[in-house]
Design a binder for these strands. Sequence first.
RNA 1: GGCGAUAUGGCCAAGUGGUAAGGCACGAGCCUGCAAAGCUCCGAUCCCCGGUUCAAAUCCGGGUGUCGCCUCCA
Length: 466
Amino acid sequence: MVIYDSVQKKKVLFEPIVENEVKIYVCGPTVYDDAHLGHARSSIAFDLLRRVLVALGYNVTFVKNFTDIDDKIINKMKESGQSLEAITTYYIKRYKEEMHALHVNDADIEPKATENVTEIIHFIEAMLLKQVAYKTSDSIFFDTSKDTQYLSLSQRNMDESTSLARVDNNDEKKDQKDFALWKFAKVSEPSYMAPFGNGRPGWHIECSAMIEKHLASHEGMYQIDIHAGGADLLFPHHENEAAQTRCKSGQEIAKYWMHNGFVTISGEKMSKSLGNSFFLKDALALYDGEVLRFYLLSAHYRANFNFSEEDLLQSKKRLDKIYRLKKRVFDTTPSDVNAQFKQKMLEALSDDINISVALAVLDEMVAVANEHLDKNAKDKAYKATTLANILWLSPLLGIGEHDPYKYFQIGIMEDEKKEIEWLISKRNEAKKAKNFLEADAIRSQLEAKNIQLMDTPNGTLWEKVN
RNA sequence: GGCGAUAUGGCCAAGUGGUAAGGCACGAGCCUGCAAAGCUCCGAUCCCCGGUUCAAAUCCGGGUGUCGCCUCCA
């Protein structure tokens, strides 16, 4: 397996710290609002990474957190009058439902910041003891000057060109770069008891603490294999996490870093301030989750992804073809996966998740199978292998897992189905009587309802088309 | 202003030194009563300029465009 390490800025051979064991931590969402397409993209990207590593035989431990205490959530509390828990519980539930619709598997561990405050406090205490953190009147800050490696992750230079006075220079921070580990309690804001003063954790500290708790081996080894997240997290979030863990433990927090590219809409990044967020709930109301997954999956995870409905519908057609082939071979019992197909597929995915090549391998398999079945419709052994190929591939990519007949009938009610089938039988009678005018009239009638007919040797099939 | 990506046929998108994968759309054909589905065939010299090399989309230099990070952010 080769992956692109976003700190080394190149593809490197992936070698887990402990043979066959892979520990991955992905930065999850701050749960104060509905998830958008960007969350979907990131989740899908690393869900695929996880599936590939599992397929390659690794024993993967996958952790994704929920940030459930944060300024934005507190703002939401003030706006809505709801409790912190009510807000975060709601959005976590929504998030998980939407991820399931996208066929994103749950992480092995899904820690929440609020459930790890004790660990966070211990972490901060250790840093205070090592004097890499200091107290001001309202916060505890990390002292970036104590970390000689600071900024090594994002490789930026803030000393000279820090004329970027865009950051408000207030408080008693020793240095503009220092960041809050703990914010002391304010009236009407949630807070936790701590020996150094009641308050609540800053953003970056939770990940360091939870990684240590859930993934570190506790045998003096704090480093995990892969730390992943959106490209915007590299700085400052991951930089700060790395600094914290380095200063506390003397070790690097992660061996490899992976960052996914953004989803843009009309070429612009989605953001609150631009008001162009495309929420997942809205997307899922319009498109099937699997189609959305396949679309978001179809470009390399590091590339920026410009969302467009037109491209999504193009992408759907590609998925349709897989399901049509599945339909063709669905009545057989799967045998063994074609070894060459399997090898080519894993080869592509092992190259930093080269999904484009992987999908090309899949398309080739589909085309070759269709061609073969056109000429040898009764080749049961071939059908069995083809079905095996599809059934092997589906859980690897998280697509094509549905009943192929049902896939083409999404959104069709039972009584509607009966009517369609009744019309089809009427059309077939007309066809038998060579009454093609009537047969075509029925077909047009169905087409008007977005029902496409296909006459095959095994009878007339129908699909709902967009 | 600093830093980092990226620029491939109508659209989406691989490929990082040896004469451009794949998908969608388009066109032609096979199949079909006709369609649909499926299959076959058909299209690009890779943003511009200069350089290195026997050989570059692929390396180097200089431009231009687009996007992102530097502030919460997947």
